[in-house]
Amino acid sequence: MNSALITGIAASLAVPNIDTDTIIPIDYCINRNRPNFDIALFRSWRFHDDGSERPDFLLNTDPYRDTKILITSANFGCGSSREMAVWALVDFGIKCVIAPSFGEIFYNNCFQNGLLAARVSDETAVTLGRTAEQTLGLTLEIDVSEKMIRTNRSEKYQFELDSLRSEMLLQGLGPVAATLTRVDDIETFEKSDRLRRPWLTPQQI
């Protein structure tokens, strides 16, 4: 991301407990390379069996084909740990998902891939969702540094984001590289742990 600001069209999908199977069905996860997962996103809600679009699904209508921000309900991304759910959202062009709560594994996967999962109060999610439904092509501006969502009518809503995840987004911080700078700490832990728990290393009977 490397930018403190996300601006774009916001779409409301006010359904609770949208699971990662719905975000991307397992059939589309069977791909051993990392293809573009755009067409897999919300596959069965977005497309008929023959591949044609369902005209009544919001993301199939203009201007929501260009949705950058998704406003949704509690427990978004619950269920399976499949990181392809995040990849599908990112590949579609989603930069931010706003919800009162997220499936935790999904939440963690978002930040590994530069996708902002913005946690807001129940009231804010409902208000923002309603505003999006009533305003065709509502554009939001999301300030990651300030943890603030702004409408073009200058309404402001706070979201939750801790500093580690904020840094991951702003600096494109790679967690593996960061951890590998602590390899001395890991070695020290392993040495003392070998004395503390000599039984730990598996030995086949």
Partner: peptide, 20 residues
């Protein structure tokens, strides 16, 4: 606990995870 693909790579390389 269950983890995503990026974290699987993290554990393979470091035998650790960054966890809240």
């Amino acid at each position: 606990w269950g983890i995503g693909t990026s974290d699987v790579a993290h554990v393979l390389a470091t035998q650790t995870l960054v966890q809240l």
